[in-house]
Design a protein around this nucleic acid. Structure first.
Lengths: 195, 195
DNA sequence: TCCGCTTCTTAATATACCTTAAGTTTTTTC
DNA sequence: GAAAAAACTTAAGGTATATTAAGAAGCGGA
């Protein structure tokens, strides 16, 4: 797939929520940056500042951080047509504590923050689009808080598998464990117990 | 404090993030609804659908739900100048599973969804404002996910106290426990142990 | 095709947090 | 200001999940 195809898939993605006219599409296209990452390559590492919004045109990524015991905790997983970022760093302009890493060879479409801020003013539909996207993202994270408080680990695993079957099959178990908030050993034990 | 004061405080709150001209202020003011709630009164109960955005002009509120064992889990706490809602229900138009309850006598300013959708089109600064607000809310919930995965219960309690000292002093311990995801008994034990 | 690296499993021991139940203190109500 | 209700504490015993350590299985590169 070439760059134009990737860009078309982003335009199509945005058009599912808001209406873009010719002018908006041209404006938008002119600021997009394509980025290619190899498996295990990092888009962002602790100490850096997030400067772009990142749409996954093709591939698979995750964001995670290390706690004080150097344990990995996965915050976000994403595949084609998902967005991935450290919004804390992007919005606050502060250094990130997160790693954002490709789990497969991945093609991103990036929207630089400076350009995006200008687009928000000139093209209200773009501001609208991101408002709608982030509303859904907020609801999804809140759902995760609810799950983590109500359910035991196996139920969370089961919910995860049912919700993200296509992701589950592309990511190693230990990353899923670190997303669910359990050790790989305990997840392995749960899988055996329920099989 | 009378209604006009409450409305002024909302306008002032919005003006901290975006610029509102006379026309926008008039338009906005014309759709606002003031709602008064007594202590323990519910704004929303399971089975109802959220139809408004709710700004706390004065008072204290929380949202919570009951899990399958009828345990309360507090999702959101808020005081003056915070927003409170079940965004899942509001955005999806589906029935809520949540209670939203006043913890003190509270005055809300409500923005009906139908009117707000119209404002988004006519006044892009309003769409912008809610995009900015929800971005911050997303970061805050994500921070909560991070805390719940890295820290033990006492650290979470400590972080909560440092971040929300003004809230901590207005709500009972058992609600804070249900926000942190522990039993009131265990929180009591932790408080003693660390005192 | 084999080696080395990454991922997954097993099991024993340890710990954070829960459940239950009872008693105490604080707040609300009339 | 007394009675009732709500909130908080204490403690014993139980469960879910972590830790450690070792080995097995799968997989990518020469």
């Amino acid at each position: 797939m070439d760059s134009n195809q990737h860009i078309k898939s982003l335009i199509h993605h945005i058009s599912q929520d808001v209406t873009l006219d010719e002018y908006a599409i041209d404006k938008l296209s002119s600021v997009l940056v394509i980025k290619e990452l190899n498996k295990k390559e990092f888009l962002l590492e602790p100490g850096e500042t997030a400067n772009t919004m990142n749409f996954i045109a093709q591939g698979c990524m995750r964001s995670y951080y290390l706690d004080e015991n150097a344990q990995e905790h996965t915050l976000q997983l994403g595949i084609e047509h998902w967005w991935i970022n450290d919004l804390y760093s992007y919005l606050s302009r502060k250094k990130s504590r997160m790693y954002i890493q490709a789990l497969e060879k991945t093609f991103l479409i990036q929207l630089p923050r400076i350009e995006l801020e200008k687009l928000y003013i000139e093209l209200p539909e773009i501001s609208n689009f991101f408002r709608i996207k982030i509303q859904s993202a907020y609801v999804a994270v809140q759902e995760r808080v609810i799950d983590s408080m109500s359910d035991d680990a196996y139920e969370r695993y089961d919910t995860f598998r049912r919700s993200y079957r296509d992701i589950e099959q592309r990511v190693p178990q230990y990353i899923i464990a670190s997303y669910l908030g359990v050790t790989p050993e305990f997840l392995s034990y749960l899988r055996k117990k329920h099989s």
